[in-house]
C-alpha cells in the first residue's frame, strides 16, 4: 500500500519512536499503517543489543531513516553523552496541580460567602 518504505527493505535503518527512543535495526517488513517488523535491534546511543526481532506498532513510529552503510556507522556512533530525544506527547508536568488550583478558585468565586 504505502510503497514509500519499500526502498528500505532489508537495509539498516534508524527508527525514532514517539517515546523518544532511537534504535538501529534491519527492516524486514511493513504494512500500510507503518507497523514495522525489524530485526537485529540495537540502541542508537549505546549500541546495546535490544532484541533479535521486534514488531513496532505504526502509531509509535516518528520516522525511519536509511543508514549510510558505506561509512559503517552502525551503532554507538552518537556516544553516551548524546542528549535524549523528546517524545511527541507535549505533556504538562503535574497538570493535576494546575487544575486543582483552577477548581479551587472557581469554588471560591461561586460561594464567596464561605470565607
Amino acid at each position: 500500500m504505502s510503497p514509500l518504505l519499500k526502498d528500505f527493505l532489508n537495509k539498516r535503518i534508524v527508527v525514532v519512536t514517539t517515546e523518544g527512543q532511537c534504535v538501529c535495526a534491519t527492516l524486514e517488513g511493513f504494512d500500510k499503517s507503518t507497523n514495522l517488523l525489524v530485526s537485529e535491534v540495537r540502541d542508537r546511543v549505546s549500541g546495546a543489543h535490544i532484541a533479535t526481532s521486534y514488531m513496532m506498532r505504526g502509531n509509535q513510529i516518528v520516522c525511519c531513516g536509511l543508514l549510510d552503510e558505506t561509512d559503517g556507522s552502525d551503532t554507538a556512533l552518537v556516544g553516551p553523552e548524546a542528549p535524549t530525544l523528546k517524545d511527541t506527547k507535549n505533556v504538562v508536568h503535574d497538570e493535576h496541580l494546575i487544575w486543582q488550583r483552577v477548581w479551587a478558585s472557581k469554588q471560591k468565586a461561586a460561594s464567596p460567602s464561605l470565607e
Binding site: L4, L5, D7, F8, V14, V16, T18, C22, T34, R44, V45, G58, N59, I61, V62, C63, C64, G65, L66, L67, D68, D71, S73, L77, V78, G79, A82, P83, L85, T88
Partner: peptide, 25 residues
Amino acid sequence: NISCSDETKYPHLSSVRNIFIRGST
C-alpha cells in the same frame, strides 16, 4: 539529503540522508 537544524543537539540522524517521516508526527 536531509540536514538537521541543530545537529549537535540531536546527532541521532547525523549519518542519515534519506528519511521516511510518518504523517501523524
